[in-house]
Design a protein around this nucleic acid. Structure first.
Length: 245
DNA sequence: TTTCCAATAT
DNA sequence: AATATTGGAA
């Protein structure tokens, strides 16, 4: 970056190895474009020619690189990132930013979080702590303490779980730390009207079944009891299952 | 203003 | 199928 709008300087920088020369002050617009150059470089589609020649093009305050027309930010999100090169950040599996070259254009690849057994376990723990009527994405997120995880992501997962529509991705076995069970209505004041919001996800049935398979007699009966609690709860305060065609 | 959440998109 | 995004409502 330079305050100086100097073509010669820019060329020199490019000779030395700069990918791009931009003028100060950097605009937000400009910043939004930068990733494309990184992506390009990574893909090795930089031709030495372009470095030396495609210079003095005045383009959105950019020097040294022509990007208008040739590279366009493509907002279409492609495919789903293959989950291979993941890195672990805290407890959340995230993917590195990914790009893909299609038709000589740089496109962003979709990156999404994978709800692993561990992540889901934390989710369920949080849900269990919060209890029926108190399960809001924001609160769940807070209790989960997973760096990088967002409220919206939790909300999406919560939706799936509420609809009993979720299962572990490929091959992972489910195992819970705590067993979150909607507590029975023990509210003595009797003012425990069903809440419109914040309902607890209903994934417990499956979990119980998995548990029972290897559970001792004692804990088995324990689970059965919990199930009955759950069932009762379901019929009293759960929203009806939406029927899909 | 912020957050929810069902519907819908990818 | 799983996760993300949207957009009206609370």
């Amino acid at each position: 970056m330079s305050v100086e709008d100097n073509a010669f300087l820019a060329m020199e920088a490019l000779e030395i190895g700069a990918l791009l020369c931009i003028e100060k002050p950097v605009t937000l617009d400009m910043l939004k474009c930068l990733w494309q150059h990184v992506a390009r470089e990574k893909k090795g589609i930089y031709k030495e020619k372009e470095r030396r020649m495609g210079t003095i093009e005045e383009n959105n305050n950019m020097r040294g690189i022509e990007f208008r027309g040739e590279i366009e930010e493509e907002h279409n999100i492609i495919g789903s990132g293959n989950m291979k090169d993941k890195i672990h950040e805290g407890k959340k599996k995230i993917s590195e930013p990914k790009y893909q070259i299609v038709n000589n254009k740089v496109k962003r690849k979709l990156v999404h979080t994978e709800w692993t057994q561990e992540l889901h376990g934390k989710f369920m723990d949080a849900v269990g702590q919060l209890g029926e009527g108190m399960c809001f994405p924001k609160e769940i997120l807070k209790l989960m303490k997973v760096p990088g995880l967002t409220r919206v992501q939790v909300a999406s997962h919560l939706q799936k779980c509420r609809n009993n529509n979720w299962q572990l991705p490929e091959g992972q076995k489910y195992q819970q730390n705590n067993v979150p069970v909607a507590s029975l209505d023990t509210d003595p004041s009797g003012q425990n009207k069903p809440r419109r919001f914040g309902s607890m996800p209903r994934l417990m049935k499956n979990s119980f079944i998995l548990h029972q398979e290897k559970a001792s007699e004692v804990s088995k009966s324990h689970f059965e009891k919990e199930i009955s609690n759950y069932v009762r709860h379901e019929t009293t305060t759960m929203a009806p299952i939406k029927n899909s065609h």
